[in-house]
Design a protein around this nucleic acid. Structure first.
Lengths: 144, 144
DNA sequence: GTTTCAGTGCAACTCGATTGCAAAGATTAT
DNA sequence: ATAATCTTTGCAATCGAGTTGCACTGAAAC
Protein backbone atom coordinates (compact mmCIF):
# COMPACT_ATOMS: atom_id res chain seq x y z
CA UNK A 1 0.00 0.00 0.00
CA UNK A 2 1.24 3.45 -0.81
CA UNK A 3 1.36 5.90 1.97
CA UNK A 4 0.06 9.02 0.40
CA UNK A 5 0.70 12.43 1.85
CA UNK A 6 -1.41 11.70 4.91
CA UNK A 7 -1.09 15.36 5.07
CA UNK A 8 -1.74 16.81 8.35
CA UNK A 9 -5.37 17.72 8.38
CA UNK A 10 -4.44 21.34 7.96
CA UNK A 11 -6.52 23.59 5.78
CA UNK A 12 -5.06 25.33 2.74
CA UNK A 13 -5.24 28.62 4.63
CA UNK A 14 -3.27 27.22 7.55
CA UNK A 15 -0.64 25.75 5.28
CA UNK A 16 -0.16 28.98 3.40
CA UNK A 17 0.18 30.96 6.58
CA UNK A 18 2.64 28.42 7.94
CA UNK A 19 4.78 28.75 4.83
CA UNK A 20 4.52 32.51 4.69
CA UNK A 21 2.52 32.68 1.52
CA UNK A 22 -0.19 35.22 1.44
CA UNK A 23 -3.67 33.78 1.00
CA UNK A 24 -5.41 34.51 -2.27
CA UNK A 25 -8.33 32.75 -3.81
CA UNK A 26 -6.35 31.15 -6.59
CA UNK A 27 -3.73 29.91 -4.17
CA UNK A 28 -6.33 28.32 -1.96
CA UNK A 29 -8.04 26.62 -4.85
CA UNK A 30 -4.81 25.33 -6.37
CA UNK A 31 -3.60 24.10 -3.00
CA UNK A 32 -6.92 22.44 -2.35
CA UNK A 33 -6.61 20.67 -5.63
CA UNK A 34 -3.11 19.49 -4.83
CA UNK A 35 -4.20 18.29 -1.41
CA UNK A 36 -7.03 16.28 -2.88
CA UNK A 37 -4.69 14.35 -5.15
CA UNK A 38 -2.88 11.22 -4.22
CA UNK A 39 -0.46 11.76 -7.01
CA UNK A 40 1.75 14.48 -8.40
CA UNK A 41 0.03 16.62 -11.00
CA UNK A 42 1.14 18.80 -13.86
CA UNK A 43 0.27 22.37 -14.69
CA UNK A 44 -1.86 21.03 -17.48
CA UNK A 45 -3.78 18.76 -15.11
CA UNK A 46 -4.59 21.67 -12.84
CA UNK A 47 -5.47 23.90 -15.75
CA UNK A 48 -7.98 21.33 -16.96
CA UNK A 49 -9.69 21.34 -13.56
CA UNK A 50 -9.64 25.05 -12.88
CA UNK A 51 -11.18 26.28 -16.08
CA UNK A 52 -12.24 29.59 -14.60
CA UNK A 53 -8.68 30.79 -14.27
CA UNK A 54 -5.60 31.09 -16.39
CA UNK A 55 -2.59 28.93 -17.11
CA UNK A 56 -0.07 31.63 -16.33
CA UNK A 57 -1.74 32.40 -13.05
CA UNK A 58 -1.58 28.76 -12.03
CA UNK A 59 2.00 28.64 -13.24
CA UNK A 60 3.02 31.55 -11.08
CA UNK A 61 1.09 30.15 -8.16
CA UNK A 62 3.03 26.92 -8.45
CA UNK A 63 6.32 28.81 -8.65
CA UNK A 64 5.41 30.72 -5.54
CA UNK A 65 4.48 27.50 -3.78
CA UNK A 66 7.74 25.91 -4.81
CA UNK A 67 9.81 28.85 -3.65
CA UNK A 68 8.13 28.72 -0.28
CA UNK A 69 8.32 24.94 -0.04
CA UNK A 70 4.62 24.37 -0.06
CA UNK A 71 5.15 21.93 -2.90
CA UNK A 72 8.04 20.27 -4.66
CA UNK A 73 8.44 19.57 -8.32
CA UNK A 74 9.30 16.31 -9.98
CA UNK A 75 10.57 15.64 -13.43
CA UNK A 76 9.23 12.22 -14.11
CA UNK A 77 10.26 11.97 -17.71
CA UNK A 78 6.76 12.53 -19.01
CA UNK A 79 7.95 15.83 -20.39
CA UNK A 80 5.77 17.72 -17.97
CA UNK A 81 6.86 18.91 -14.57
CA UNK A 82 4.70 17.43 -11.84
CA UNK A 83 3.99 18.99 -8.48
CA UNK A 84 3.15 17.48 -5.12
CA UNK A 85 2.60 18.79 -1.62
CA UNK A 86 5.58 18.81 0.68
CA UNK A 87 5.07 16.98 3.91
CA UNK A 88 4.67 19.17 6.94
CA UNK A 89 8.30 19.09 8.00
CA UNK A 90 9.76 19.10 4.54
CA UNK A 91 12.54 21.53 3.78
CA UNK A 92 13.20 20.03 0.40
CA UNK A 93 16.62 19.08 1.74
CA UNK A 94 18.27 15.93 0.52
CA UNK A 95 17.07 14.17 3.65
CA UNK A 96 13.51 14.91 2.72
CA UNK A 97 13.84 13.23 -0.63
CA UNK A 98 11.81 10.30 -1.73
CA UNK A 99 11.40 8.20 -4.81
CA UNK A 100 8.75 8.93 -7.35
CA UNK A 101 7.06 6.32 -9.42
CA UNK A 102 5.88 7.13 -12.90
CA UNK A 103 3.39 4.73 -14.44
CA UNK A 104 4.19 4.38 -18.11
CA UNK A 105 0.65 3.24 -18.80
CA UNK A 106 -1.63 5.73 -17.07
CA UNK A 107 0.94 8.51 -16.76
CA UNK A 108 0.33 9.06 -13.05
CA UNK A 109 3.19 9.94 -10.76
CA UNK A 110 3.22 8.67 -7.19
CA UNK A 111 5.32 9.72 -4.24
CA UNK A 112 6.86 6.62 -2.67
CA UNK A 113 7.14 7.90 0.85
CA UNK A 114 7.79 4.47 2.33
CA UNK A 115 10.69 3.55 0.11
CA UNK A 116 13.77 4.93 1.82
CA UNK A 117 16.45 6.76 -0.10
CA UNK A 118 19.72 4.95 0.40
CA UNK A 119 22.91 6.63 1.38
CA UNK A 120 24.75 7.70 -1.73
CA UNK A 121 28.50 7.73 -1.90
CA UNK A 122 29.52 10.45 -4.30
CA UNK A 123 32.95 10.72 -5.92
CA UNK A 124 35.43 12.85 -4.08
CA UNK A 125 34.71 16.55 -3.92
CA UNK A 126 31.24 16.23 -5.38
CA UNK A 127 28.58 18.00 -3.38
CA UNK A 128 25.00 16.84 -3.23
CA UNK A 129 22.38 19.54 -3.24
CA UNK A 130 19.30 17.79 -4.48
CA UNK A 131 18.18 14.59 -6.08
CA UNK A 132 15.49 13.41 -8.40
CA UNK A 133 14.81 9.69 -8.35
CA UNK A 134 12.15 8.49 -10.71
CA UNK A 135 11.25 4.87 -11.20
CA UNK A 136 9.24 4.04 -14.26
CA UNK A 137 7.00 1.05 -14.62
CA UNK A 138 3.46 -0.07 -14.05
CA UNK A 139 1.45 1.03 -11.04
CA UNK A 140 -0.66 -1.42 -9.07
CA UNK A 141 -3.69 -0.44 -11.05
CA UNK A 142 -2.17 -0.90 -14.49
CA UNK A 143 -0.12 -3.99 -13.64
CA UNK A 144 -2.84 -6.55 -14.26
CA UNK B 1 37.80 9.96 -9.20
CA UNK B 2 34.99 9.30 -11.60
CA UNK B 3 35.24 6.27 -13.69
CA UNK B 4 34.13 7.47 -17.03
CA UNK B 5 32.98 5.17 -19.80
CA UNK B 6 36.39 3.58 -20.07
CA UNK B 7 34.86 2.62 -23.30
CA UNK B 8 36.37 -0.35 -24.76
CA UNK B 9 38.85 0.91 -27.23
CA UNK B 10 36.46 0.07 -30.05
CA UNK B 11 36.14 2.38 -33.02
CA UNK B 12 32.81 3.98 -33.91
CA UNK B 13 32.58 1.69 -36.92
CA UNK B 14 33.03 -1.40 -34.78
CA UNK B 15 30.47 -0.25 -32.26
CA UNK B 16 27.88 0.46 -34.93
CA UNK B 17 28.39 -2.92 -36.52
CA UNK B 18 28.17 -4.60 -33.14
CA UNK B 19 24.86 -2.89 -32.45
CA UNK B 20 23.49 -3.51 -35.92
CA UNK B 21 23.40 0.10 -37.00
CA UNK B 22 24.46 0.79 -40.53
CA UNK B 23 27.50 3.02 -40.80
CA UNK B 24 26.96 6.43 -42.24
CA UNK B 25 29.17 9.47 -42.02
CA UNK B 26 26.88 11.38 -39.71
CA UNK B 27 26.55 8.40 -37.39
CA UNK B 28 30.28 7.97 -37.16
CA UNK B 29 30.85 11.63 -36.45
CA UNK B 30 28.11 11.80 -33.81
CA UNK B 31 29.34 8.63 -32.16
CA UNK B 32 32.90 9.88 -32.22
CA UNK B 33 31.74 13.01 -30.51
CA UNK B 34 29.90 11.04 -27.85
CA UNK B 35 32.91 8.80 -27.29
CA UNK B 36 35.18 11.78 -26.82
CA UNK B 37 33.04 13.19 -24.02
CA UNK B 38 33.35 12.29 -20.42
CA UNK B 39 29.90 13.53 -19.77
CA UNK B 40 26.41 13.16 -21.17
CA UNK B 41 25.58 15.68 -23.86
CA UNK B 42 22.44 17.20 -25.28
CA UNK B 43 21.27 17.48 -28.85
CA UNK B 44 22.07 21.15 -28.63
CA UNK B 45 25.62 20.45 -27.53
CA UNK B 46 26.21 18.18 -30.48
CA UNK B 47 24.55 20.59 -32.85
CA UNK B 48 26.93 23.31 -31.74
CA UNK B 49 29.91 21.12 -32.51
CA UNK B 50 28.73 19.68 -35.80
CA UNK B 51 27.84 22.84 -37.60
CA UNK B 52 28.08 21.25 -41.01
CA UNK B 53 25.00 19.15 -40.44
CA UNK B 54 21.45 19.57 -39.31
CA UNK B 55 19.62 19.37 -35.99
CA UNK B 56 17.00 16.96 -37.23
CA UNK B 57 19.62 14.67 -38.70
CA UNK B 58 21.45 14.53 -35.40
CA UNK B 59 18.16 14.04 -33.64
CA UNK B 60 17.27 11.06 -35.77
CA UNK B 61 20.76 9.69 -35.40
CA UNK B 62 20.40 9.83 -31.64
CA UNK B 63 17.01 8.14 -31.79
CA UNK B 64 18.49 5.38 -33.91
CA UNK B 65 21.36 4.99 -31.46
CA UNK B 66 18.97 4.82 -28.56
CA UNK B 67 16.75 2.25 -30.23
CA UNK B 68 19.77 0.08 -30.88
CA UNK B 69 21.24 0.65 -27.43
CA UNK B 70 24.32 2.42 -28.61
CA UNK B 71 23.48 5.20 -26.21
CA UNK B 72 21.05 5.85 -23.40
CA UNK B 73 19.23 9.02 -22.60
CA UNK B 74 19.05 10.84 -19.30
CA UNK B 75 16.65 13.45 -18.08
CA UNK B 76 18.74 15.42 -15.69
CA UNK B 77 16.29 18.17 -14.99
CA UNK B 78 18.10 20.70 -17.12
CA UNK B 79 15.16 20.61 -19.50
CA UNK B 80 17.25 19.00 -22.17
CA UNK B 81 17.65 15.29 -22.73
CA UNK B 82 21.25 14.20 -22.42
CA UNK B 83 22.81 11.25 -24.14
CA UNK B 84 25.72 9.02 -23.19
CA UNK B 85 27.34 5.91 -24.59
CA UNK B 86 26.15 2.61 -23.23
CA UNK B 87 28.85 0.43 -21.85
CA UNK B 88 29.72 -2.56 -23.96
CA UNK B 89 27.46 -5.01 -22.21
CA UNK B 90 24.64 -2.61 -21.53
CA UNK B 91 21.12 -3.68 -22.39
CA UNK B 92 19.58 -0.67 -20.76
CA UNK B 93 17.91 -3.05 -18.34
CA UNK B 94 17.26 -1.96 -14.78
CA UNK B 95 20.41 -3.83 -13.75
CA UNK B 96 22.46 -1.66 -16.03
CA UNK B 97 21.25 1.50 -14.39
CA UNK B 98 23.51 3.98 -12.75
CA UNK B 99 23.21 7.35 -11.10
CA UNK B 100 23.75 10.52 -13.00
CA UNK B 101 25.14 13.64 -11.49
CA UNK B 102 24.04 17.01 -12.77
CA UNK B 103 26.20 19.95 -11.86
CA UNK B 104 23.98 22.92 -11.17
CA UNK B 105 26.84 25.29 -11.84
CA UNK B 106 28.41 24.16 -15.12
CA UNK B 107 25.43 22.17 -16.35
CA UNK B 108 27.45 19.05 -17.10
CA UNK B 109 25.99 15.63 -16.51
CA UNK B 110 28.20 12.78 -15.37
CA UNK B 111 27.59 9.05 -15.29
CA UNK B 112 28.41 7.73 -11.83
CA UNK B 113 29.37 4.24 -12.82
CA UNK B 114 30.97 3.45 -9.48
CA UNK B 115 28.04 4.38 -7.32
CA UNK B 116 25.92 1.27 -7.06
CA UNK B 117 22.17 1.40 -7.42
CA UNK B 118 20.59 0.05 -4.27
CA UNK B 119 17.87 -2.51 -4.25
CA UNK B 120 14.54 -0.79 -4.36
CA UNK B 121 11.52 -2.20 -2.60
CA UNK B 122 8.44 -1.11 -4.50
CA UNK B 123 4.93 -1.16 -3.09
CA UNK B 124 2.98 -4.30 -3.76
CA UNK B 125 2.04 -5.00 -7.35
CA UNK B 126 4.16 -2.19 -8.74
CA UNK B 127 6.41 -3.27 -11.57
CA UNK B 128 9.75 -1.64 -12.27
CA UNK B 129 10.63 -1.16 -15.90
CA UNK B 130 13.17 1.59 -15.84
CA UNK B 131 14.64 4.17 -13.56
CA UNK B 132 16.16 7.58 -13.79
CA UNK B 133 18.25 8.67 -10.82
CA UNK B 134 19.69 12.12 -11.02
CA UNK B 135 21.65 13.76 -8.25
CA UNK B 136 22.08 17.49 -8.47
CA UNK B 137 24.85 19.44 -6.90
CA UNK B 138 28.34 20.70 -7.59
CA UNK B 139 30.89 18.66 -9.49
CA UNK B 140 34.48 18.37 -8.32
CA UNK B 141 35.46 21.18 -10.63
CA UNK B 142 32.82 23.65 -9.52
CA UNK B 143 32.93 22.76 -5.81
CA UNK B 144 35.79 25.05 -4.87
C1' DG C 1 20.58 0.73 -65.79
C1' DT C 2 16.57 1.23 -63.27
C1' DT C 3 14.00 0.68 -59.17
C1' DT C 4 13.73 0.88 -54.27
C1' DC C 5 14.61 2.26 -49.84
C1' DA C 6 17.15 4.15 -45.97
C1' DG C 7 19.31 8.37 -44.71
C1' DT C 8 19.75 13.41 -44.83
C1' DG C 9 18.66 18.47 -44.93
C1' DC C 10 15.46 22.11 -44.76
C1' DA C 11 11.53 24.25 -43.08
C1' DA C 12 7.64 24.18 -40.51
C1' DC C 13 5.07 22.82 -36.56
C1' DT C 14 3.95 21.23 -31.66
C1' DC C 15 3.51 21.94 -27.07
C1' DG C 16 4.98 23.00 -22.36
C1' DA C 17 7.16 26.71 -20.12
C1' DT C 18 7.77 31.47 -19.49
C1' DT C 19 7.38 36.57 -19.83
C1' DG C 20 5.52 41.52 -20.87
C1' DC C 21 2.07 44.29 -19.95
C1' DA C 22 -1.96 46.19 -18.28
C1' DA C 23 -6.02 45.70 -15.21
C1' DA C 24 -7.65 44.47 -10.62
C1' DG C 25 -6.97 44.03 -5.85
C1' DA C 26 -4.68 44.71 -1.54
C1' DT C 27 -1.66 47.47 1.40
C1' DT C 28 0.56 51.52 3.15
C1' DA C 29 1.27 56.30 3.67
C1' DT C 30 -0.79 60.83 3.81
C1' DA D 1 -11.05 58.56 3.38
C1' DT D 2 -7.88 59.22 -0.51
C1' DA D 3 -3.81 58.80 -2.98
C1' DA D 4 0.32 56.23 -3.85
C1' DT D 5 2.49 51.80 -4.02
C1' DC D 6 3.06 47.05 -4.37
C1' DT D 7 1.25 42.43 -5.35
C1' DT D 8 -1.54 39.39 -7.86
C1' DT D 9 -4.02 38.05 -11.86
C1' DG D 10 -5.47 37.44 -16.85
C1' DC D 11 -4.47 37.75 -21.59
C1' DA D 12 -1.55 37.41 -25.35
C1' DA D 13 2.72 36.72 -27.13
C1' DT D 14 7.14 34.53 -27.13
C1' DC D 15 10.69 30.94 -26.36
C1' DG D 16 12.91 26.78 -27.06
C1' DA D 17 13.47 21.78 -27.20
C1' DG D 18 11.57 18.22 -29.63
C1' DT D 19 9.47 16.38 -33.60
C1' DT D 20 7.56 15.72 -38.31
C1' DG D 21 6.54 16.33 -43.52
C1' DC D 22 8.57 16.41 -47.62
C1' DA D 23 11.76 16.42 -51.11
C1' DC D 24 16.48 15.26 -52.39
C1' DT D 25 20.52 12.19 -52.26
C1' DG D 26 23.01 8.20 -52.36
C1' DA D 27 23.51 3.42 -51.60
C1' DA D 28 21.73 -1.27 -52.26
C1' DA D 29 18.74 -4.57 -54.77
C1' DC D 30 16.73 -6.14 -58.87
Amino acid sequence: MIRVKVSNMKSPEEILELKNVKCTSIRIVVLQHLLSQEKAVSLKDIEAELTYTDRSSIFRTLKTFEKNKVIHSIEDGSGMIKYAICSEDCNCDPEDLHFHFYCSNCGKTFCLLDTPIPNIQLPENFKLQQANFVIKGLCNHCNQ
